[in-house]
Nucleic acid binder design. Structure first.
Lengths: 215, 215
DNA sequence: GTCACGTTTTGAACGTGTTCAAAAGTTGAT
DNA sequence: ATCAACTTTTGAACACGTTCAAAACGTGAC
């Protein structure tokens, strides 16, 4: 009999799928490693053979959600929208995707910021750097040349901030996060227009190099 | 015999003092609730009578550190320093105070952002809002009137950001955080000068109202 | 077919944060 | 002095994340 390729990988995936089901059904605290293993028909120790920790599983779960957000929001970024609209779409759909898992907020933060530097770059990319490039390039009118190249990085930074805020936002339905997004979008749009002015542009340059210091 | 006032409060304080010693000696993970209780000559359950959780103890520990930072940095803010200098002093002394407890970073974040809204205001205040007022008011030249009133709030925001960055900064000796501070100070100083210009001022207004949305 | 070696799986154990019912102690009114 | 109500303390227990030595399994060489 032909052994299916990657039997080990399959077991790992089974674990992951089971975990994600349980996460969705019972939440983070309500999903125990024992339950994940049992529901997968494996022993507890075996789960730890495939994943170093519960957080490691959450980490992969998070990456799935990021991918989902990308797939959901990408088609909504239609040409003709202005930057403010696209920005709102991208941010709000992120919130929508994450909403059922608000309880995971701190764990997401933990796993997104933990790990080595190369791993952080990974999350960097995972956090949809490409999506922000799309947000920019599909907006009309296109942002001023002065900032067009750097804008995705700036937007990515904004999204990181909002993500952090959301993770610790205790307001019902994350209403404060929603309000924040609604207010951020026009401010950024205005800032982009003003970036034509050398003073503003120089400030943005400063901020950008700060961000690069920190990355 | 005259019972000393607040016997209950004393027990609580004993627990706290013991915990802080152990935290300094053995770190966060190395300090168990059992050890705190035992070293205080109390039972484990009793410790939980005074503190809801280990995090609750860390929370108070953090507040002590914040107070310590205030006391350390306040006298260093001498008149004659310019804003950039004072800003660096305040930020770097914060790092110095927190440095031995880098391992607590995520726990600090957790406790600082958890809790009710009124509790968050508490942390708000705890994070030395007053210190930033002092940083501003003792700087010469004084910042432009256009921004003088709001600057402390802006600086407080900056500090929060840097604190977050530090908490998850894995670089040896938190060197990245140190570098960030060194670079942030002049940028902010420049921004303050530019705040005389209406465009810049209007952007700052936007940012401020965003912050207030989020608070 | 057997053996040696690497991969996978097990089951039990450890130490942790947290909970809780019940005991012990304290206080103030009668 | 007694009793009732409240505060403090105890000790045992629970469930969880994590670890580990040993067993089982698979595979390729001889």
């Amino acid at each position: 009999m032909v052994t299916p390729i990657g039997k080990s990988a399959q077991t790992r995936q089974l674990l992951l799928d089971t975990a994600m089901e349980l996460f969705a059904a019972k939440g983070f605290a309500g999903t125990t490693m024992r339950a994940i293993a049992a529901e997968s028909g494996l022993s507890l120790g075996n789960a730890y053979y495939y994943f170093d920790s519960k957080d490691a599983i959450v980490h992969e779960f998070f990456r799935e959600l990021v991918e989902k957000h990308r797939n959901v929001s990408w088609p909504l970024l239609v040409p003709g929208n202005n930057l403010e609209t696209n920005l709102r779409i991208a941010l709000e759909s992120a919130l929508e995707t994450l909403a059922p898992f608000h309880e995971f907020g701190p764990a997401f933060i933990r796993t997104a910021f933990a790990g080595t530097h190369s791993d952080l770059s990974d999350v960097h990319r995972a956090l949809e750097f490409g999506l922000w490039r799309q947000v920019v390039s599909v907006s009309s009118p296109l942002p001023p040349l002065a900032i067009r190249k750097d804008l995705p990085e700036l937007l990515w930074l904004i999204q990181r901030g909002i993500f952090l805020f959301w993770a610790y936002d205790r307001s019902p339905g994350a209403s404060r996060s929603r309000r924040l997004i609604k207010n951020v979008a026009p401010v950024i749009a205005r800032l982009v227009v003003l970036s034509r002015m050398p003073v503003v542009r120089s400030i943005l340059d400063d901020v950008l190099s700060l961000v690069r210091t920190a990355t």
